[in-house]
Design a protein around this nucleic acid. Structure first.
Length: 169
DNA sequence: GCCAACGTTGGC
DNA sequence: GCCAACGTTGGC
């Protein structure tokens, strides 16, 4: 029981630059493998912690506006990132041996796109999200944990901004 | 476009 | 095993 705790659903946030892969790409594809993560801390989450059924927030980074734009669900837990083995792939890593892979990925499916993106500024202004990894100064983790409480607040925000968006103001 | 924060590499 | 140099991330 060391590895698979029977704990409940857990929550995460994945970053992506929308120019390379956006929520709209995911909606089009409906499912994808989240490849190309080349950071050990993020790798550990992918390999060891992220489980089928976990909820994942989709964050658009390095864009205007930076925002959480929707949600996904994990449909396959950590397995070797094959893009590391392909010399033609942008994420090729000659040090990753297929017999003992360095890098891992998970599969996610599109759950929903928020009616209104929850911008970084809005998140920063939101009570209860002060400790979000995303909002910590200098945080560069592209795969990061989200607490159940943070998830709840964000779901609520998404729901409410969706409503008010209909009648502006 | 700038640059601070961070992670990785490599000389010693 | 330290740490300076370097490359990258990503907010601003």
């Amino acid at each position: 029981m060391a590895k698979k705790q029977a704990a409940g659903r857990r929550y995460w946030l994945f970053k992506s630059e929308p120019e390379s892969y956006s929520i709209d790409h995911l909606e089009r594809d409906s499912q994808t493998f989240w490849a190309g993560v080349r950071n050990y801390q993020a790798r550990n989450f992918l390999r060891d912690d992220i489980q089928v059924g976990d909820g994942v927030l989709f964050y658009h980074s390095s864009t205007e506006p930076m925002a959480i734009v929707g949600a996904m669900e994990v449909v396959k837990a950590g397995y070797p990132d094959h893009t590391a083995f392909d010399p033609k792939d942008h994420h090729y890593d000659p040090d990753s041996d297929p017999k003992s892979p360095t890098w891992y990925m998970v599969d996610v499916r599109f759950a929903r796109k928020f009616a209104v993106p929850l911008t970084r500024d809005a998140l920063k202004a939101q009570k209860g999200l002060e400790k979000m990894v995303l909002l910590q100064k200098g945080s560069r983790l592209s795969i990061q944990p989200v607490t159940a409480e943070e998830w709840r607040i964000i779901e609520e925000l998404a729901k409410n901004s969706g409503k008010s968006g209909a009648h502006k103001g």
